[in-house]
């Protein structure tokens, strides 16, 4: 299970941070989403799936 953000489309909305604060953050330089834990443990997956769904730019992916 690998989490990715395609930063080219990211608008820095921070929905991923709200959905899974342990897995995502926003870069201090440009506000874009960053992945803190690329291979999250099972207990973090519901939050990650929520982020995939909520990301307005649809750039968060979870490869299962």
């Amino acid at each position: 299970m690998t989490v990715r953000i395609d930063q080219t489309g990211c608008i820095g909305a921070g929905q991923c941070v709200l959905a899974a604060p342990d897995v995502f953050d926003q870069s201090d330089d440009d506000g874009l989403g960053i992945v803190l834990i690329a291979e999250p443990s099972a207990d973090l997956l519901p939050g990650v799936r929520d982020a995939v769904d909520r990301c307005p730019a649809q750039v968060v992916t979870l490869e299962e």
Partner: peptide, 9 residues
């Protein structure tokens, strides 16, 4: 993009 930085969570 630049505005997003100012509205970060």
């Amino acid at each position: 993009r630049p505005l997003s930085r100012g509205f970060m969570v």
